[in-house]
Each structure stands twice: as C-alpha cells, then as structure tokens.
Design a protein around this nucleic acid. Sequence first.
DNA 1: CATCCGTGGTA
DNA 2: TTACCAAGGAT
Length: 364
Amino acid sequence: MEATAAAAFRECLVRWYLEHRRKLPWRQTVDPFGIWVSEVMLQQTQVDTVIPYYRRFMARFPTVGRLAEADLQEVLKLWEGLGYYARARNLHRAARQLAADNHGILPDDVIALRRLAGIGRYIAAAVASIAFGRPHAVVDGNVKRVLARLSLINAPVNRADAYPLFEKEAQSLLDLKDPGRFNQAVMELGALVCRPKRPHCDACPVAAFCRAYLTGQVSTYPKRVCKPPIPTRAMAAGVIQRGGRVLILQIPLEGLLGGFWEFPGGAVEAGESSEASCIRHIRKKTGLSVDTCGHLGRIRHAYTHFKVLADLFIFRWRSGSVCLDDHLDHRWVGPEELTQYPLPKTHHKFMSLLVGQDFRIQRP
DNA sequence: CATCCGTGGTA
DNA sequence: TTACCAAGGAT
C-alpha cells in the first residue's frame, strides 16, 4: 500500500475502533500484568469465554507477586475449563522468574519479554505495544485474515513459512502514534467485522482499501491448506471405590493435561474389551487389583488432534497398595473432595455419569 | 518446518 | 454430525 493510502487507512481504522470497540475488562487497565494475563488467556480462546476467567484470576492474583507465591494447583484450578493448560503452568513459572529476578516487574522490551515462559512473538509484541507503547505490530489469526483480504495475500495463513510475509505487511501499516491502539484496532476489526464467515463488508470502515472487497473475492480469502481428519481413540477409565473414597492420579506436567487429575485408565487396544483394558491399565498404573461393579456409560470428547470415545467403569478395590508408574501422585478422595482438584472436561462428563450412583459428586 | 496442546461456539 | 475457528507457544 502506498504511504499516503496507508496513512488514510490507519485513520479510518482507528476512528472506527475508538467508536465501536468493546468495553473489555483488560481494556479498563494500564497494568502490564493485567494486559499480559489477558493475552495469555486469549490465545486460541474467544473473548466471551475468557471474560469470567479473567475476572476471577485477576481478583485472586492481582499482581505478579501474588501469582508467584501461589501453588500451581490453585492456578490450574482457576484455569480449569479454559484449556491449553501449559499456558497456566508457563504463566505461573514466568511470574516466579520475574519475582525472583526482577522484583516482579514486567520488562518493557520484546527481547526480554520473550525470555519469559509462555511469551512468544505475539504476546511479546502485544504487551510491548499495548502496555508500553513500543512500535511492534502483532500478528495473530485476526491480523492474518484482515491482511490477506486487504492486500490479497495468497500465502496460506496456516502455514508457518507464511508468517514473515504477514509480519512485514503488518509492520508496514503500523500506526507509530499509538501502536497498541492500532494493534487492537486490527484485531477488533477481525473479530467484529472482518470475520472468517459472513464478514460485514457493508459496515467495514476500510472497505475502500480492501483489494478483496474491491474485486469481489472476500469469500476466497484467506487461503488455507487442508488438514487431515483427526482420528478417534477408544479409551476406558475406572472409578475405584474403597471405603467411600475413589482413586485419582495426577498427570505428569509435560504433556496433555499436565498437572491435572484423572481416574486411572488408558487406550483400548484392538481386539480387547474396554473392561479388560481398564483393568489392565489400572494394574499397570496403580498396582491395584480390582473387582468390576458395573459399566457407568460412555462419553465423547474432542481434543485438538484426536477424538475420544471413553467408557467409564466402576470397580471395588480388592488388593494391593498404590504403586505409581508414570503419574506424579495419587489421592483417595471423597465426593466433596474430588471437585477441589483440577479435572479435565472428560471427567466432568464422567461425573455426570456418576450422578445417582452410591458415590455422589457435588456440583461446583 | 509440522505437530502437540483444550474447549466452546458456529454454520 | 462434522469441520472450522478462536488475541499462539513449545518443541
């Protein structure tokens, strides 16, 4: 885009933003920590989903120091249901880094920001521009979609090697008078007007600059490469009862649902019944022998890269003491205690199956 | 480079 | 029901 056109584009976009922007909680503060927390929660997560989590989180952890001194388990419990739990683990770790090395103060430059756990190129640019006015353009899903339409960029937005192209384009359009405001304006336009489906081109403040709109190709941008369909895995999990309590195991921190708690179980192999599979996994992962009391039902759940079809069984402890294989820890918990632990969505579905059983689950 | 990482909303 | 999408980061 020509320099004079770019200046006009910025003015139209920012004017629209100042009039139409949503009053979001993280826009009511200039506190870098609050901005940071919001950006972490907003990763791959819609605004309406984030808002209640953000309010609870900031009320409980208003500063870096308060977050740093908290237990990870409490942080994960507050994050429960929001997904991508490495975000919470990294945020907690970064807060401890800052509390120990920098008096709990967030650095104001992208290089230092990127050294912190969970801060990549997007959050570094977002915090630096929004909280500190630094001249860095952000590139997220909204920005790539807006720019692909605006400038007819044919590079697929879901290919890693297309990133430098979008970044260069975003940086060339950035409004240096207020980089943070401009970045938020592009993203707000993407969220409210230049949406993936059924964009509101009639209401778009920069339609006059949009090459896709001017040439009638909005619906064919952005370009995207197809992804293979995701597989379905058969799983089985077991509620092991002993003296009015049940057994839960803590998942290792590195992988899926790290730090969360689960009923013992695992993948059902081909040619194996889900009940036999469950007993096999229980023996391997806990060292316990159990007797089957019944089949409680089946739940479906979709993760990012696979779907789960999981059977839930109820067992009674027969013999043995707990000896963990891969898990970090274990607890025998009563109904009221169970919901104190961070539990995956699958287990909230499991708890629905438990309603009406002898073991009663309290609703959170 | 691509893949792994959660969940809810939407067409 | 399926598939895509949402203020990405770590590996």
